[in-house]
Amino acid sequence: MNDILDGIITKYREKEGNVIFLLQETQDALGYIPEEAVNYFSEKLEIPPSRFYGVVTFYSQFHLKPRGKNIVSVCCGTACHVKGGSKIAERIQRDLGLAADGETTEDGKFTFEIVRCVGACSIAPVVLVNNSAYAEMSADSTSKLIKELKKKESSGTK
């Protein structure tokens, strides 16, 4: 991991010392921001960890825990909200057996997230699986989608 982090530090120094850039690169490389990475940066760059955590916790893009292989998100922007987004969210939680926004299934295959407006309001309500949007969903069609995803995962093909 340290090699990756060193590479990021080099790029960071070229980028006028931008902490957000550093963290975005880290998350792109590792999938999340591990505590060890923050400590490593802190030591190498002589920046207190609090400054990194300040940025990490401020922006919704950063994650302090590893996320699942598939990210199933439901949009709860205004248009999706009035067209039943929250019902879909409840159904996904039930189908995946997850209690709250941001949780990951024990096998690490699925993470459920509620997102705020992905800008696809004209085809609301929208469900996203790894950034592909599914239009005009209902709780039932979402259940079907999740069933298919689970099937794909258990048969080992992606």
Partner: peptide
Amino acid sequence: GAGAFVCGEETALIASIEGERG
């Protein structure tokens, strides 16, 4: 952007471009 609504506000957006909390 890294996902913060307030960064649409001008001075917050500037802070965010500079790499800080927006």
